[in-house]
């Protein structure tokens, strides 16, 4: 019997969310007293990455390689994960609640006739039963859910679990695949890949609101993001996205993305309830706003009351100074 963790990769690189999934899977496997098996799906050349998954706690790795897996292949991946689940007697299958995981996990659930809990922030075992906590109704409530049967399928909200190393020598086995089904042909839109991480998965987010005044001032926030380092994403309030200053992919909040980074900067954002719904679970929130009464200060861990056009450049400067001393 096993806990199975789907190790997401894109473009041949294992993604950070895979390590988070493995970490959560390690905990679950220990509680259940079963082995943790990572399943890695991708092009044949990816097999070199497989053994490395032992670093985050995989006892063993199942590699499903195929020429038709250069890009995400919904049907082929589904078949591979379902087969791995059958072979290992999976009691639970963990996915990241990423774009790929959100597409793949319901497919596998439908294939196995299993229950799926989406966007889980906590998973544990109570009296031998797998239970999960997940937000619902736009984060207004939390559901603690139990599974009526196994396998239990869960997708984990990125950054809800911090990746932790738990190294072991993971043996790699190769999954024999039948001719993969391919109903949907996927390709990556060219010229769109940004160098910054996505807002849903970033370690640090610098989010700007209407107070920033216009798209031409975003250079200020970019400068701060650059100073903070490569794990930093840009975020935006809805006011900014609706005005066309920033793309919808950056919107944080009830109708945008729900994020839980270790550090969140809210710059010129008032802190409307719908915005808070998307970022209140960030571990550390910093607000810069010229209005001392702005509601964002009610959730911020640290605030500076002042003009962002003075505060933000200084912040970039101080952080660069700090980084150069490291």
């Amino acid at each position: 019997m096993s806990v199975l963790a789907f190790a997401e990769q894109r473009g041949g690189a294992v993604r950070q969310v895979a390590f988070e999934t493995l970490t959560a899977g390690r905990g679950l496997a220990d509680s259940l007293g079963v082995e943790l098996v990572a399943v890695l799906v991708g092009p044949p050349a990816l097999s070199s990455e497989a053994a490395g998954l032992g670093k985050y706690g995989a006892d063993r790795v199942i590699f499903a390689g195929s020429e038709s897996f250069e890009e995400y292949a919904p049907e082929g991946y589904t078949d591979a994960v379902a087969k791995a689940a059958g072979q290992t007697g999976a009691k639970a299958i963990l996915f990241p609640a990423s774009a790929q995981g959100r597409d793949l996990s319901p497919r596998v659930a439908a294939r196995l006739g299993a229950g799926l809990a989406t966007d889980v922030t906590q998973v544990s075992v109570e009296n031998g039963r797998i239970v999960a906590v997940r937000p619902a109704y736009g984060g207004k409530v939390l559901f603690k859910v139990g599974f009526k049967a196994e396998p239990a399928l869960l997708s984990l909200r990125p950054r809800a679990v911090a990746a932790a190393e738990s190294p072991r020598d993971a043996q790699v086995t190769t999954l024999e695949l039948d001719q993969p089904r391919e109903l949907t042909k996927v390709s990556t839109a060219t010229g769109e890949q940004k160098e910054r991480p996505d807002v849903a998965e970033a370690e640090i987010i610098v989010a700007g609101g209407r107070g920033v005044g216009g798209p031409e001032h975003w250079a200020l926030l970019e400068e701060l993001a650059d100073a903070l380092g490569p794990g930093t994403a840009l975020g935006a309030s809805r006011a900014v996205v609706d005005a066309g200053w920033r793309p919808h992919g950056e919107q944080v909040g009830q109708t945008g993305k729900v994020v839980a980074p270790p550090l969140y900067f809210a710059v010129g954002i008032s802190g409307a309830i719908q915005h808070l719904a998307g970022m209140r679970t960030a571990r550390c929130i910093v607000a810069v706003n010229k209005d001392a009464e702005a509601p964002i200060f009610k959730v911020a861990d640290y605030g500076i009351v002042g003009d962002l056009f003075e505060v933000v450049p200084r912040l970039s400067e101080e952080i660069r100074k700090l980084r150069s001393q490291e």
Partner: peptide
């Protein structure tokens, strides 16, 4: 296939501190 065992509210965020004014 799932049952809701318990509904809770997310913890109320607690306000932190204003570090100061301006740059």
């Amino acid at each position: 296939r799932l049952e809701i065992l318990e509904v809770t509210y997310p913890p109320e965020p607690t306000a932190g501190e204003i570090v100061g004014e301006g740059a």
